[in-house]
Design a protein around this nucleic acid. Sequence first.
DNA 1: CATCATACCTGTTCGC
DNA 2: TGCGAACAGGTATGAT
Length: 277
Amino acid sequence: MPELPEVETIVRNLRPIFEGRKFLGGEAFNASSFVSEEFSFEDLAGKKLISIERRGKFINMFFEDEFVLTVHLRMTGRLIVIEEGGEGEEGENPQKYERVRLHLKGMSLGFHDLRKFGKVWLNKGGDYEEKTGIGRLGIEPMRREFDLKNFEALLASRKGNVKAFLLDQSRVAGIGNIYADEALFYAGIRPHRDLKSLREDEKKKLFEGVKCSLSQGIENCGTSFSDFVNAHGEKGSNQELLFVYGRGGKKCLRCGGILKKEKVAGRGTVYCEECQE
DNA sequence: CATCATACCTGTTCGC
DNA sequence: TGCGAACAGGTATGAT
């Protein structure tokens, strides 16, 4: 569920709290949640956290000496700030779904993940992108290099339906099920439409829909449908502004018709038969 | 190589 | 009401 806007919200929370702090140690409460082929938390001890950046739905924490901690929340992952001396600090037992805990000087960070799909990787040097899957990501849709021209080139690079295209992280990075459905509603395009069938005006509208739905999500600190909370455990408000996601069977906010829900590209997909063609 | 379906998990919701 | 089935969905992997 955390998609680009939710991950961006978390990164913006974490930066002022953790950047500049020294890593002290870490614990993995679930072996499969922490991936490190060559290094342990002890190797990272004493290194200062230089910066925290988002790439697609991944979070990278860059430390001194080229160490990189990478986090992917997948569906139910959360990063929760634990203040020094507060509940859950060092010495306390892990919380129910806490899988990894990172201790920095004066402040700790808990990685919680009910379904254990998410991961924390520890790497050193430039190959962290290959080790984590970041290397396969496509363009960043909130950066300047994402323009209509290369969006159209990406559309032409793939076959199949437009929903599968939007979910394909190797084309445009960071879109998930929520923002894919919202972008398609914005553009007035049905999710099953074959990419080859898109007209020029529809491509342009879809490009705008991707940018608008993502930037609105960021502005509102993410969509908290079920799991998402920011690093302080607070919910975002974008769920109040969604047109289609999670609204199957309800009235379309634009035309009043009943929204359809069906499976497209293997995902629950909501759209309006009236407003999308 | 590209695309598609499935596995990975566990709590919640749905249908009988 | 109870219980099992279906669902939630991001990505790696295997199948096609």
